[in-house]
Protein backbone atom coordinates (compact mmCIF):
# COMPACT_ATOMS: atom_id res chain seq x y z
CA UNK A 1 0.00 0.00 0.00
CA UNK A 2 1.22 3.47 -0.79
CA UNK A 3 2.78 5.33 2.13
CA UNK A 4 1.52 8.81 2.89
CA UNK A 5 3.04 11.56 4.97
CA UNK A 6 0.46 12.06 7.71
CA UNK A 7 1.26 15.73 7.99
CA UNK A 8 0.53 16.17 4.29
CA UNK A 9 -2.70 14.19 4.64
CA UNK A 10 -3.87 16.49 7.44
CA UNK A 11 -2.92 19.54 5.40
CA UNK A 12 -4.71 18.25 2.33
CA UNK A 13 -7.75 17.50 4.48
CA UNK A 14 -7.69 21.07 5.81
CA UNK A 15 -7.33 22.56 2.35
CA UNK A 16 -9.76 20.19 0.61
CA UNK A 17 -7.15 18.56 -1.60
CA UNK A 18 -7.43 14.89 -0.59
CA UNK A 19 -7.74 12.46 -3.48
CA UNK A 20 -10.04 9.49 -2.92
CA UNK A 21 -7.05 7.24 -2.20
CA UNK A 22 -5.63 9.77 0.23
CA UNK A 23 -9.02 10.22 1.84
CA UNK A 24 -9.22 6.49 2.50
CA UNK A 25 -5.73 6.45 4.01
CA UNK A 26 -6.51 9.50 6.10
CA UNK A 27 -9.72 8.04 7.51
CA UNK A 28 -8.00 4.76 8.35
CA UNK A 29 -5.17 6.60 10.07
CA UNK A 30 -7.64 8.72 11.99
CA UNK A 31 -9.15 5.69 13.75
CA UNK A 32 -6.28 5.84 16.22
CA UNK A 33 -7.15 8.27 19.05
CA UNK A 34 -3.60 9.55 19.30
CA UNK A 35 -3.72 10.54 15.67
CA UNK A 36 -6.88 12.52 16.30
CA UNK A 37 -5.00 14.71 18.75
CA UNK A 38 -2.36 15.22 16.07
CA UNK A 39 -5.06 16.44 13.73
CA UNK A 40 -6.38 18.80 16.39
CA UNK A 41 -2.94 20.30 16.93
CA UNK A 42 -2.27 20.78 13.26
CA UNK A 43 -5.76 22.21 12.71
CA UNK A 44 -5.05 24.66 15.47
CA UNK A 45 -1.73 25.65 13.89
CA UNK A 46 -3.43 26.06 10.54
CA UNK A 47 -6.22 28.13 11.95
CA UNK A 48 -3.99 30.39 14.03
CA UNK A 49 -1.50 31.07 11.26
CA UNK A 50 -4.27 32.73 9.23
CA UNK A 51 -3.79 35.84 11.36
CA UNK A 52 -0.09 36.13 10.56
CA UNK A 53 1.08 39.65 9.82
CA UNK A 54 4.73 40.35 9.04
CA UNK A 55 6.36 41.96 12.06
CA UNK A 56 9.78 42.78 10.67
CA UNK A 57 8.56 44.79 7.68
CA UNK A 58 6.83 48.14 7.80
CA UNK A 59 6.24 49.51 4.33
CA UNK A 60 6.24 53.27 4.06
CA UNK A 61 3.29 54.24 1.89
CA UNK A 62 4.04 57.97 2.06
CA UNK A 63 7.63 57.55 0.91
CA UNK A 64 6.50 55.16 -1.79
CA UNK A 65 3.93 57.66 -3.06
CA UNK A 66 6.56 60.42 -3.21
CA UNK A 67 8.86 58.13 -5.13
CA UNK A 68 6.05 57.39 -7.56
CA UNK A 69 5.19 61.07 -7.90
CA UNK A 70 8.80 61.99 -8.58
CA UNK A 71 9.09 59.42 -11.27
CA UNK A 72 5.92 60.51 -13.10
CA UNK A 73 6.94 64.15 -12.80
CA UNK A 74 10.28 63.34 -14.37
CA UNK A 75 8.53 61.51 -17.18
CA UNK A 76 6.11 64.32 -17.89
CA UNK A 77 8.65 67.15 -17.53
CA UNK A 78 8.53 69.24 -20.70
CA UNK A 79 11.64 68.81 -22.74
CA UNK A 80 12.65 71.32 -25.34
CA UNK A 81 15.76 69.43 -26.24
CA UNK A 82 15.58 67.56 -29.49
CA UNK A 83 17.65 64.41 -29.27
CA UNK A 84 19.11 64.04 -32.68
CA UNK A 85 19.03 60.60 -34.17
CA UNK A 86 22.49 59.60 -33.31
CA UNK A 87 25.03 59.77 -36.11
CA UNK A 88 26.33 56.34 -35.27
CA UNK A 89 28.18 54.14 -37.60
CA UNK A 90 24.92 52.42 -38.36
CA UNK A 91 23.41 55.60 -39.61
CA UNK A 92 26.51 56.42 -41.55
CA UNK A 93 26.28 53.05 -43.17
CA UNK A 94 22.85 53.58 -44.55
CA UNK A 95 23.08 53.49 -48.26
CA UNK A 96 21.98 56.80 -49.63
CA UNK A 97 19.91 55.20 -52.36
CA UNK A 98 17.86 53.31 -49.81
CA UNK A 99 17.16 56.11 -47.47
CA UNK A 100 14.15 58.26 -47.74
CA UNK A 101 13.36 60.00 -44.55
CA UNK A 102 10.20 61.98 -44.55
CA UNK A 103 11.04 65.11 -42.70
CA UNK A 104 7.60 66.06 -41.62
CA UNK A 105 6.61 69.66 -41.32
CA UNK A 106 6.16 69.25 -37.63
CA UNK A 107 8.98 68.37 -35.30
CA UNK A 108 6.98 66.64 -32.68
CA UNK A 109 3.93 64.52 -32.71
CA UNK A 110 1.93 64.19 -29.55
CA UNK A 111 0.75 60.88 -28.38
CA UNK A 112 -2.66 61.77 -27.05
CA UNK A 113 -2.90 58.67 -24.99
CA UNK A 114 -0.02 59.26 -22.63
CA UNK A 115 1.47 62.61 -23.46
CA UNK A 116 4.62 61.20 -25.01
CA UNK A 117 6.28 63.29 -27.70
CA UNK A 118 8.06 61.88 -30.64
CA UNK A 119 10.47 63.13 -33.22
CA UNK A 120 9.38 63.28 -36.83
CA UNK A 121 8.71 59.78 -38.17
CA UNK A 122 11.30 57.95 -40.19
CA UNK A 123 9.57 56.26 -43.10
CA UNK A 124 11.45 53.68 -45.13
CA UNK A 125 10.85 53.76 -48.88
CA UNK A 126 12.67 50.43 -49.00
CA UNK A 127 14.53 48.38 -46.40
CA UNK A 128 16.37 50.74 -44.14
CA UNK A 129 18.84 50.19 -41.36
CA UNK A 130 18.74 52.76 -38.59
CA UNK A 131 20.86 53.23 -35.49
CA UNK A 132 19.43 54.63 -32.26
CA UNK A 133 21.35 56.72 -29.76
CA UNK A 134 21.46 53.90 -27.18
CA UNK A 135 23.35 51.65 -29.58
CA UNK A 136 20.27 49.65 -30.61
CA UNK A 137 19.67 48.96 -34.28
CA UNK A 138 16.46 48.84 -36.24
CA UNK A 139 15.88 47.48 -39.70
CA UNK A 140 12.71 48.92 -41.15
CA UNK A 141 10.87 47.09 -43.89
CA UNK A 142 9.48 48.97 -46.87
CA UNK A 143 6.85 51.54 -45.84
CA UNK A 144 7.46 50.96 -42.12
CA UNK A 145 7.45 54.05 -39.96
CA UNK A 146 9.39 54.59 -36.76
CA UNK A 147 8.93 57.42 -34.29
CA UNK A 148 11.46 57.97 -31.52
CA UNK A 149 10.46 59.55 -28.21
CA UNK A 150 12.17 62.91 -27.95
CA UNK A 151 13.61 61.96 -24.54
CA UNK A 152 14.96 58.73 -25.94
CA UNK A 153 18.11 57.51 -24.20
CA UNK A 154 17.82 59.83 -21.21
CA UNK A 155 14.64 59.11 -19.31
CA UNK A 156 13.08 56.60 -21.59
CA UNK A 157 13.73 54.28 -24.49
CA UNK A 158 10.39 54.45 -26.22
CA UNK A 159 9.60 54.25 -29.92
CA UNK A 160 6.43 53.88 -31.94
CA UNK A 161 6.19 51.56 -34.88
CA UNK A 162 3.85 51.10 -37.82
CA UNK A 163 4.64 48.33 -40.25
CA UNK A 164 7.39 45.76 -40.03
CA UNK A 165 10.79 46.08 -38.41
CA UNK A 166 13.58 44.05 -36.88
CA UNK A 167 15.03 45.33 -33.61
CA UNK A 168 18.39 44.51 -32.10
CA UNK A 169 18.26 46.15 -28.69
CA UNK A 170 21.23 47.21 -26.66
CA UNK A 171 20.82 45.81 -23.13
CA UNK A 172 20.07 48.36 -20.41
CA UNK A 173 18.67 46.94 -17.16
CA UNK A 174 17.68 50.33 -15.81
CA UNK A 175 15.93 51.62 -18.93
CA UNK A 176 13.69 49.08 -20.64
CA UNK A 177 13.13 49.51 -24.35
CA UNK A 178 9.44 50.01 -25.10
CA UNK A 179 7.83 49.77 -28.51
CA UNK A 180 4.34 51.14 -28.85
CA UNK A 181 2.44 49.11 -31.42
CA UNK A 182 -0.88 50.85 -31.86
CA UNK A 183 -2.34 50.68 -28.40
CA UNK A 184 -0.43 47.58 -27.33
CA UNK A 185 3.12 47.61 -26.04
CA UNK A 186 6.21 45.54 -26.03
CA UNK A 187 9.00 45.79 -23.47
CA UNK A 188 12.51 44.38 -23.52
CA UNK A 189 15.83 44.89 -21.78
CA UNK A 190 18.11 43.65 -24.54
CA UNK A 191 17.22 41.22 -27.27
CA UNK A 192 16.43 40.89 -30.99
CA UNK A 193 13.08 40.33 -32.64
CA UNK A 194 10.73 41.10 -35.53
CA UNK A 195 7.66 43.25 -35.03
CA UNK A 196 4.90 43.79 -37.55
CA UNK A 197 2.20 46.29 -36.67
CA UNK A 198 -0.92 46.43 -38.78
CA UNK A 199 -3.63 48.54 -37.13
CA UNK A 200 -4.32 47.11 -33.70
CA UNK A 201 -2.84 43.71 -34.53
CA UNK A 202 0.86 43.25 -33.89
CA UNK A 203 3.01 40.22 -34.54
CA UNK A 204 6.21 39.70 -32.57
CA UNK A 205 8.83 37.04 -33.35
CA UNK A 206 11.78 36.59 -31.00
CA UNK A 207 15.25 35.83 -32.33
CA UNK A 208 17.13 36.16 -29.03
CA UNK A 209 16.42 37.07 -25.41
CA UNK A 210 13.04 37.64 -23.79
CA UNK A 211 10.31 40.00 -24.96
CA UNK A 212 7.28 41.02 -22.91
CA UNK A 213 4.17 41.90 -24.90
CA UNK A 214 1.13 43.59 -23.46
CA UNK A 215 -2.43 43.89 -24.68
CA UNK A 216 -5.14 45.69 -22.68
CA UNK A 217 -4.77 43.66 -19.52
CA UNK A 218 -2.90 40.59 -20.71
CA UNK A 219 0.85 40.22 -20.64
CA UNK A 220 3.01 37.45 -22.08
CA UNK A 221 6.72 36.81 -21.99
CA UNK A 222 8.15 35.41 -25.20
CA UNK A 223 11.44 33.62 -25.50
CA UNK A 224 13.63 32.57 -28.44
CA UNK A 225 11.67 31.01 -31.29
CA UNK A 226 8.29 32.19 -30.02
CA UNK A 227 5.80 34.28 -31.91
CA UNK A 228 2.89 36.26 -30.51
CA UNK A 229 -0.04 37.82 -32.29
CA UNK A 230 -1.39 40.61 -30.12
CA UNK A 231 -4.91 41.84 -30.73
CA UNK A 232 -5.37 44.87 -28.53
CA UNK A 233 -9.08 45.38 -29.11
CA UNK A 234 -9.91 41.81 -28.23
CA UNK A 235 -7.26 41.76 -25.48
CA UNK A 236 -5.85 38.56 -26.94
CA UNK A 237 -2.28 37.32 -27.18
CA UNK A 238 -1.91 34.21 -29.30
CA UNK A 239 1.37 32.30 -28.95
CA UNK A 240 3.00 30.23 -31.68
CA UNK A 241 6.39 29.06 -32.85
CA UNK A 242 8.39 31.08 -35.31
CA UNK A 243 10.85 29.95 -37.97
CA UNK A 244 14.46 31.07 -38.07
CA UNK A 245 13.82 32.06 -41.70
CA UNK A 246 11.45 34.74 -40.40
CA UNK A 247 14.49 36.93 -39.89
CA UNK A 248 16.05 36.44 -43.31
CA UNK A 249 14.33 39.46 -44.78
CA UNK A 250 16.71 41.74 -42.90
CA UNK A 251 19.71 40.37 -44.79
CA UNK A 252 18.87 42.19 -47.98
CA UNK A 253 19.62 45.40 -46.14
CA UNK A 254 23.23 44.70 -46.85
CA UNK A 255 22.79 45.35 -50.54
CA UNK A 256 24.49 48.66 -50.14
CA UNK A 257 25.04 51.14 -52.89
CA UNK A 258 27.12 54.27 -53.14
CA UNK A 259 28.82 54.08 -49.78
CA UNK A 260 32.30 55.09 -48.72
CA UNK A 261 35.15 52.61 -48.57
CA UNK A 262 35.12 52.59 -44.79
CA UNK A 263 31.38 52.07 -44.66
CA UNK A 264 31.48 49.23 -47.12
CA UNK A 265 34.23 47.30 -45.34
CA UNK A 266 32.64 47.94 -41.96
CA UNK A 267 29.48 46.42 -43.32
CA UNK A 268 31.35 43.45 -44.72
CA UNK A 269 33.17 42.89 -41.42
CA UNK A 270 29.93 42.77 -39.52
CA UNK A 271 28.03 40.71 -42.04
CA UNK A 272 30.71 38.04 -42.52
CA UNK A 273 32.24 38.33 -39.05
CA UNK A 274 35.76 38.91 -40.43
CA UNK A 275 38.47 41.47 -39.89
CA UNK A 276 39.38 43.72 -42.81
CA UNK A 277 42.34 46.06 -42.52
CA UNK A 278 42.78 49.03 -44.81
CA UNK A 279 46.28 49.79 -46.00
CA UNK A 280 47.23 53.52 -46.27
CA UNK A 281 47.31 53.06 -50.06
CA UNK A 282 43.57 52.74 -50.08
CA UNK A 283 41.80 55.75 -51.49
CA UNK A 284 39.17 56.38 -48.86
CA UNK A 285 37.39 59.02 -50.91
CA UNK A 286 35.97 56.36 -53.20
CA UNK A 287 32.28 55.74 -53.33
CA UNK A 288 31.49 52.12 -53.95
CA UNK A 289 28.56 49.98 -54.80
CA UNK A 290 28.80 46.45 -53.59
CA UNK A 291 26.87 43.58 -55.12
CA UNK A 292 26.13 42.05 -51.75
CA UNK A 293 23.76 39.17 -51.72
CA UNK A 294 22.65 37.04 -48.83
CA UNK A 295 24.17 33.80 -50.13
CA UNK A 296 27.52 35.03 -51.51
CA UNK A 297 30.70 34.22 -49.65
CA UNK A 298 33.14 36.95 -48.66
CA UNK A 299 35.58 35.64 -51.27
CA UNK A 300 32.96 35.96 -54.02
CA UNK A 301 32.33 39.52 -52.90
CA UNK A 302 36.03 40.33 -53.10
CA UNK A 303 36.18 38.77 -56.56
CA UNK A 304 33.39 41.01 -57.80
CA UNK A 305 34.95 44.07 -56.20
CA UNK A 306 38.26 43.23 -57.81
CA UNK A 307 36.65 43.12 -61.22
CA UNK A 308 34.75 46.34 -60.67
CA UNK A 309 37.43 48.44 -59.03
CA UNK A 310 41.19 48.70 -59.01
CA UNK A 311 41.61 46.51 -55.95
CA UNK A 312 44.47 44.51 -54.49
CA UNK A 313 43.76 42.51 -51.38
CA UNK A 314 45.32 39.69 -49.45
CA UNK A 315 43.53 36.94 -47.59
CA UNK A 316 45.67 36.43 -44.49
CA UNK A 317 43.46 33.79 -42.91
CA UNK A 318 39.87 32.64 -43.13
CA UNK A 319 38.67 35.63 -41.19
CA UNK A 320 41.34 38.18 -41.87
CA UNK A 321 41.81 40.30 -44.99
CA UNK A 322 44.01 43.23 -45.86
CA UNK A 323 43.09 45.74 -48.54
CA UNK A 324 46.48 46.67 -49.97
CA UNK A 325 45.36 49.03 -52.66
CA UNK A 326 42.10 50.46 -53.83
CA UNK A 327 41.38 53.14 -56.38
CA UNK A 328 38.18 53.98 -58.13
CA UNK A 329 39.65 56.32 -60.73
Amino acid sequence: MKQFDNMVLIHKHLTGQLSSEEKQAYEAWLLDNENQSNVEEISQVWSKTAAYEPTSFEPNATAAYHKFKNSIEKESAPSTKVIRLHPLRWVARIAAGLVFVISALFLFQSDLINGDKYEAPIVASSILQHGLSDGSNVVLAENASLEVDNRFGEQTRKVKLEGKAFFDIQRNESLPFIIKMGKSELEVLGTSFNVNVVGQISTVEVKSGVVEVRAKTKTEKLTVGQKAVVNFEKDEIELNKTEQSAFNWTKSVLSVESVSVVQLFDELEKYYNVNIELNPNVDQSCTLTSPLAGNSSIDQIFDVLKETYDLIYEKQSNDRYEIKFLSCK
Binding site: D5, M7, V8, I10, H11, E41, I42, Q44, V45, W46, K48, T49
Partner: peptide, 13 residues
Protein backbone atom coordinates in the same frame (compact mmCIF):
# COMPACT_ATOMS: atom_id res chain seq x y z
CA UNK B 1 4.53 21.71 3.79
CA UNK B 2 5.15 18.77 6.09
CA UNK B 3 8.31 20.36 7.44
CA UNK B 4 6.57 23.69 8.04
CA UNK B 5 3.69 22.10 9.92
CA UNK B 6 6.03 20.02 12.08
CA UNK B 7 8.05 23.07 13.05
CA UNK B 8 4.98 25.19 13.71
CA UNK B 9 3.40 22.44 15.79
CA UNK B 10 6.57 22.09 17.82
CA UNK B 11 6.69 25.82 18.52
CA UNK B 12 3.03 25.77 19.52
CA UNK B 13 3.59 22.79 21.78
Amino acid sequence: ISKALKILRKDLS
